[in-house]
Design a protein around this nucleic acid. Sequence first.
RNA 1: UCCCCGAUAGCUCAAUCGGUAGAGCGAGCGGCUGUUAACCGCUAGGUUCAAGGUUCGAGUCCUUGUCGGGGAGCCA
Length: 463
Amino acid sequence: MSLSKIAKLLNDGQPSQEVEVAGWVRTKRESKQSFAFLELNDGSSMTGLQVIVDDAVPGFADSIKAITTGASVRVAGKLQESPGKGQRIELHAARLNVLGTADAQTYPLQKKRHSFEFLREIAHLRPRTNTFGAIARVRNALCAAIHNFFQSRGFLYIHTPVITTSDCEGAGTMFQVTTLDLAKLAQLKTEIDYGQDFFGKQASLTVSGQLEAEIFACSTGDCYTFGPTFRAENSNTTRHLAEFWMVEPEMPFYELKDNMDLAETFIRTILSDVLVACPEDMEFFNLRIEKTILETLRNIIDNDFIRLPYTEAIEILEKSGQEFEFPISWGVDLQSEHERFLTEQHFQQPVILYDYPRGIKPFYMRCNDDGKTVRAMDVLVPRVGEIIGGSQREERLDVLTERMQECGLEAEDYWWYLDLRRYGSVPHSGFGLGLERTLLLLTGMANIRDVIPFPRTPKNAEF
RNA sequence: UCCCCGAUAGCUCAAUCGGUAGAGCGAGCGGCUGUUAACCGCUAGGUUCAAGGUUCGAGUCCUUGUCGGGGAGCCA
C-alpha cells in the first residue's frame, strides 16, 4: 500500500477507507484507558491528522511510550468519522511503526510557543512548525505562480550566470569568487595577478541577471530570469539578505508605461494565485501573524496602483506638513520614512513612482527629453517598501556611452552590452522583483530571515 | 557601518538600593479524561554570554569583546 498525503485525506478521505500515512507527531494525548490520540503532520498541510491508537494495535504500550513530540511514525488503518470536535475524519490505527524517536529532554521543538529568533537558530527543525511549514508552502506556491504568469504569456525562462566577471550596474558590493590561495597571497604581500585566477580575471557572484537578460530580450523576445542574487553589503535589517531570489523580466519594444502595466498586473496576479492555492496557510497568517494581511492583499489585488512621477511625490511630501528626519527636496533619493508616508498614510496602497532624477539612478536607464530625469520606476508597497525596481533601458548608443562616462564606467568592460545598441537596437524595459520581499507582503512576517529557508546575512551562514 | 536595547533553567521572562537565583511554559513521574493550546498534583532542572576591573560582597556597577533584537543607511 502506498502512502497518502494527509492534506488529501483531510480534503476527500472517506469513512471506512483503508489508508497508510507517515509523518511527525506534533502532540500525543494519552489515555490510561488503553488508547491515545496522536496529531500527525506530514508537511502537506497546516492541519494534521488525528490518529487513534488503542491496545489492539500490536506493540501498543511500547510504541506509545516511545512516541513523544517530534517522533516519526508510519500508521496504517481505517478512516472514520470523528465524534470529537475539530476534525471531520480521523484515522483508527491497525498498525503503527515508530520510525524515529525524539528525546523530549533534548528535542528543542516542544509543544509550546517559540520565538522566531530561537527558531532561526534551529533552521534545520523549524520547518516542522506551523508557521515555517506554511511559509514553505506559500513560497512554493508563489514561485509556481511566477512561472505560470510568464509562461502563460510566452516569456522564455533564461538562466543567467551566477558567476560573473562584469561589475554589472555597480549595484552594491559583490562577493568575490576565486581559487587563488589567499593564505599564500597574504604572506607574499604583492599585487594580486588575477590572470592567474580561475577565470583569468576577477570574478564575482552576480548582483543581477539584468544585463544578460537584455541579450535575450533583444534576440528571442520576452524573457525572465529567476534565481539567486548576491549582495555583500553589510546590511543588518529586516528587509535585506546577502543571498536572495530575484525575478527579472525583460521585454523588447516595451516603454516605461508598458513596463509599469506589466509590473502591476504581475503583482496582482501572483498574489491572487497564492490566495487561491494556499487558503489554509493564508488564513493562519491572518489569524496568528498579521491580523490585517488578507484585507491588505485584497485591497492590493482589487485596486489600481497609484502612479506618481517622482517630482509630484516630492511636492506631496513637501506639502504634507510632516516632520521628516531627512529633509526632502528635488534630486535626493526618497528615504524609507518618505516611502512609508506615501504608501501607508497618504495613499494607503501600492504606489509606482517613476521618472526619477538621473543623478540617483544607474547608467542603463533611459534618459528623458527634459535632461533631468530617467525612465525609472519603483513599486512601493505598505509595510515592506520597495518591492520592484525597474526601468526602460537606454537604447541609444551615444546617450548610453555618455551616461557610462558620467557614472565613471569603462566602455570596454561593457563591449557586449554596447553591441546590443550598435546592432539592431530596440526600445526595451524590465524590472526586478524581490521574492523574499514579496513573501513579507504575502505572509505578514516581519523579518526577511524568516521567509527564506536558510538565510544568509552578515555573520550568519549556518546550515 | 551608525544609533538604541538586550543576553539569567530546554523556551519566554522576573530578581527592589550591590546582600541566600524565581515564575510560567516545556520535560519527568503520578492521577483523570473521546482528547484536541487537554486538565489536576508532585519533582527535577542554573559556570546568570566571555574576559578583565571596582567592592567585604556583583545577575546587578565599569571596560572590552561576541552574539541577538529594533531603527537608519545601502537596495530587491
